[in-house]
Design a protein around this nucleic acid. Sequence first.
DNA 1: CCATCTTATGCTCACGGAGAGTATAAATGG
DNA 2: CCATTTATACTCTCCGTGAGCATAAGATGG
Lengths: 319, 319
Amino acid sequence: MARSPQKKTSAPASGNAVTADLVAVLVAVTDGTPKIMTIAGGSALPSGPFEFTHRSLQTALRAWVEAQTGHPLGYVEQLYTFADRGRSGDARSPHSVSISYLGLTREDRVGEGFEAHWSGWYDYFPWEDHRDGAPAFIAKTIAPKLKTWAKAAPSPTLQRERWQRCAITFGLDDRDWNEELVLQRYELLWEASLIPEANHSRGREASVVPGKPMTADHRRILATGIARLRAKIKYRPVVFELMPAEFTLLQLQRSVEALAGRLVHKQNFRRLIEQQELVEETGAMAADTVGRPAKLFRFRHAVLAERAVAGTKLPLSRT
Amino acid sequence: MARSPQKKTSAPASGNAVTADLVAVLVAVTDGTPKIMTIAGGSALPSGPFEFTHRSLQTALRAWVEAQTGHPLGYVEQLYTFADRGRSGDARSPHSVSISYLGLTREDRVGEGFEAHWSGWYDYFPWEDHRDGAPAFIAKTIAPKLKTWAKAAPSPTLQRERWQRCAITFGLDDRDWNEELVLQRYELLWEASLIPEANHSRGREASVVPGKPMTADHRRILATGIARLRAKIKYRPVVFELMPAEFTLLQLQRSVEALAGRLVHKQNFRRLIEQQELVEETGAMAADTVGRPAKLFRFRHAVLAERAVAGTKLPLSRT
DNA sequence: CCATCTTATGCTCACGGAGAGTATAAATGG
DNA sequence: CCATTTATACTCTCCGTGAGCATAAGATGG
């Protein structure tokens, strides 16, 4: 970084010039399946060079997505910025800075005739879907391979630490599954060389763990996005960005479950939603359903103005 | 942004080249005062061009800080990336991308003879310190000015919305103070032109609200860092990065209070710390104290390996 | 028409965490 | 010895949350 702080309003780019890329994790939920927008046959996230004709990064991303989908992007949040020195390893290739964003939409909003597709995100992270319990291949395939990797550590202490890390992130040894550790799990599998992208020497030692790979570090970026979203839905009403204008409480629940990758207690879910006054009845009832018909609800946009957003966990004094 | 996703491994920079800057919010807590590292007489955060000789942004930041302070940087976290088209407004000046980081250290680790200084962060955000109750000037100065600003909105509805926003972020009208809304408060004051930095036409209409200004958007970046840190200390044991090797529970509590800007219930704070097994006794007692001497504790680094980190708020099913 | 299935919706219970207060112990300086 | 300051141990009360029971309201098949 800097030589000296004084030089911060620094000299024009010389050897210092880079290119800026945007990478987008665009999420939608359709029929209980979380999907992401992909290009290149599902092997990459939509991305492209940043055009400085826009006022801010956020504006640039919105403009681009709207051009692609024909509809405004509901919720946008910056994820992370990566810097590569010469992405391809070629020393002369330009340095690049990749700025990644998370965006929430609805699949049906996307116009036809684009090269982009929607892919289920569990295609890329099959071990993340615990809605029907932990996938069998975690115990059958992943856990043994991780154990082997842990045992390959040089010292017994390091072996224990490695395995403890595996057990925590994957909920092994009777630990609870923590759905938010998406990135940690991906990084662990990467370190253990169980991810195709990790084997730099041109994809031999092919996919040792199920899950579709992606270009460069796109799957890591996706993991970051999923983790962020799974954390966010717990303290911010962002799920509604993924819902149609009217929905039943079960549909809402299914969307949350799709994102979280685990099931939710129905009655408690409803209690939570209603006591927070997040929704209001439309008066209409859902049609075409099995079982007792459900009321239709809509999101109360007013709550966004009414309430602040943060949570607390300190033993605060009210005095 | 992108014209077409296909072009993502895009052409070398032409009109697209930018410079990459790092901006650091380096925090320490000394004697119950949260401090940040500043340069230029306290009017700017340390920053400088990113050198692509490093493997990653994080590495670059660490290396730079270690060169400055002579000690490793405990905790580092990326904050946000901003893009400006021509920072100075000069259309021909290079576009820049500023990547900001939050870092935690201890003041005494910094070597002497550097141009950097430590400034109390409440010098820049005096309205954020509620340890002795809400500062009087919030009710006396800020609230009335915000009321005026709210009333200046075109329609009655907008006026009410504006005021509601003010009341929420500043805890007015008998609302609770939410210490995490640091950025929201800064942005609100900015919008209401109560912040010198907001008055683009060369600092007339000088500081209408107490608090030291900063260069460019540095105070906004600092607000982002404070907000992030205030949120983080509640669910991650990062305070310990700011503590000496051994400390009393009261010292620990004072540090948390310094960061949060509000007081904490002593007994409950201890209960929380101890039941989470975050610390262990050193056996020694604190010297040079008034009142009954306190036990000295040290951070149990093992907890970082033992436990995962995330929290939950969904009505999950355990079955 | 009834039995059964499915989903919707209302209500209760138990447990644990968090805010708050009381009480006692151990040091210091007059 | 007493006032003061800080340390430390308990207790009490709410309330949020996980969990389960019970009932309602529709469809479907015999």
